[in-house]
């Protein structure tokens, strides 16, 4: 009985070894080689529209893929019946690889808030090159890649503004949107 049991065990072991060797030989025991493509990485551009007013710093209309708020230099000493224009250079600075990335920038009607807002009037539009037109500037401009337009924000203080309006702080906000064409 002991001999029969030992023979069975030996036969089982031999069968397992043969099967194992046969399986390994059939699937792995051939050559293979590899090589890399070194193809590189496709990277999307950052939608970059920059704004610059006078000697102020260059600011971006979007940051990290999110819309941003751009603060322009303060306008001080505005007198009744006076109109001042703040020119802002808007540049299509997106570094698109195709070199043909065109955008349209559009502005909303300026919104004036503050204690003297009832006496303040603000208009905005785009001028050509570095000048601001005096009447009815267009509310949108198309910019080629690397191109610049001038956003003109005109702010007037009514001649009827009372003395109590003096020294008050007011704010003018203009929503500027840019879209790829």
């Amino acid at each position: 009985m002991r001999t029969t049991s030992a023979l069975k065990t030996a036969a089982l072991v031999i069968t397992a070894v043969v099967l194992g060797l046969g399986t390994v030989q059939g699937s792995l025991a051939v050559w293979n080689t590899t090589t890399a493509s070194a193809a590189g990485t496709v990277q999307a551009a950052d939608f970059a529209v920059t704004l610059k007013s006078g000697s102020g710093a260059v600011q971006r209309l979007s940051a990290n893929g999110q819309p941003a708020t751009v603060t322009l230099p303060a306008l001080t000493g505005l007198k009744p019946a006076e109109t001042r224009i703040i020119p802002v250079a808007v540049t299509n600075a997106t570094a698109a690889g195709n070199g043909n990335f065109r955008i349209r920038t559009t502005i909303s009607t300026p919104n004036v808030t503050g204690a003297a807002s009832g006496y303040l009037t603000a208009t905005a539009g785009f001028g050509e090159s570095d000048s601001c037109p005096t009447a009815a500037p267009p509310a949108s401009a198309q910019l080629a890649q690397g191109g610049t337009a001038t956003l003109c924000v005109a702010i007037s203080l009514s001649s009827a503004a009372p003395a109590t309006a003096g020294g008050q702080s007011n704010s003018v906000s203009v929503k500027l949107t840019a879209a790829q064409l």
Partner: peptide, 22 residues
Amino acid sequence: GLQDASAKYDFSKVGYKLDQVA
């Protein structure tokens, strides 16, 4: 919107393999 601004798609780990056939 601004979806996928600065996103990337890396192809550098693509490669080729030559396997012998028994």
